Amino acid sequence: MKYKSVFDIIGPVMIGPSSSHTAGAARIGRAARTLFGKEPTKVDIYLYGSFAKTYRGHGTDVALIGGILDYDTDDQRISSSIKDAKAKGMTINFYEDEAATEHPNTARVILTDDDEQLELVGISIGGGKVEITELNGFELHLSGNHPALLVMHNDRFGAIASITQILARNEVNIGRMEVSRKDIGKEALMIIEVDQNVNDIILNELKEADHILQVSKIVD
């Protein structure tokens, strides 16, 4: 792996002790919160590999919950995040799963409230960097290093074009794009990493495009 700066190695400004187990975990939790769009009433977290073995000692548990509460990696409240969440009435369950995974620092986060549920798989790859590899059963590769749009749409011709045309008209450049679907003609997920954050005016225009079911954004 090539590093762009020393901060890729030592990690971001954060609450310790570990960039992989703490900062990375907080970013996984925060990505789940951003995509869920609100505070959940119930959190189920399955930990694998190294995460499962050391999550209490390395603060992975409080970091994940801190991220779900929308705390940043350097927020002093991370250390009390589980207490804070329970005070809000949030139900929290951690499970140590022995299933084999491609990466040792893997967490499956399930957020639930009365109306909906989100399931996300994230890995902490070192230096506080993370990748999201699964969202609600769709496989994806989302680094979190750039602003991104996640577009749920009907698997129909014209859906991708309707989105890219709006972005082009608003001079938003696409850095990377992938589409995942479970079956032909069913729901599909479009992942678009862009060079700049997309404002709410453009976001609302995207939501009104043909065959689009839902649009979420992750801000850099």
Rank of each mutant, 00 (worst) to 15 (best):
124 S>R: 10
10 I>A: 03
44 D>H: 10
105 N>I: 06
201 I>K: 11
59 G>Q: 06
215 V>G: 07
180 S>A: 11
88 K>G: 00
130 V>W: 11
178 E>T: 12
168 A>N: 13
178 E>P: 00
8 D>N: 12
26 A>R: 05
39 E>K: 13
96 E>C: 08
80 S>V: 07
62 V>S: 06
124 S>P: 09
210 D>C: 02
88 K>C: 00
34 T>D: 15
68 I>F: 13
101 T>V: 09
143 S>I: 00
179 V>E: 11
47 L>T: 10
217 K>M: 08
125 I>M: 09
19 S>L: 03
46 Y>A: 13
124 S>D: 05
54 T>R: 02
13 V>S: 14
33 R>D: 04
34 T>K: 15
87 A>C: 00
2 K>M: 01
104 P>Q: 02
163 I>T: 14
186 K>W: 05
195 D>R: 11
136 N>Y: 06
112 T>L: 10
44 D>T: 14
52 A>S: 15
53 K>A: 07
38 K>D: 06
179 V>W: 05
63 A>W: 10
135 L>S: 03
100 A>T: 07
90 M>I: 14
173 N>P: 03
147 P>L: 02
194 V>K: 06
96 E>T: 08
34 T>Y: 14
139 E>V: 01
217 K>V: 00
73 T>I: 01
77 R>N: 12
84 D>K: 08
83 K>L: 04
215 V>A: 11
70 D>M: 05
64 L>S: 01
164 T>H: 09
27 R>W: 15
94 F>I: 02
84 D>L: 11
189 L>N: 15
71 Y>C: 12
85 A>S: 05
93 N>C: 07
105 N>P: 04
26 A>N: 10
87 A>W: 05
142 L>S: 06
217 K>A: 09
178 E>D: 03
109 V>T: 05
67 G>T: 04
72 D>L: 13
123 I>A: 01
28 I>N: 00
203 L>G: 01
128 G>W: 14
50 S>I: 02
6 V>F: 15
8 D>F: 07
156 R>G: 06
22 T>D: 01
130 V>F: 12
13 V>Y: 15
154 N>I: 12
215 V>W: 14
205 E>M: 11
44 D>E: 13
213 L>R: 15
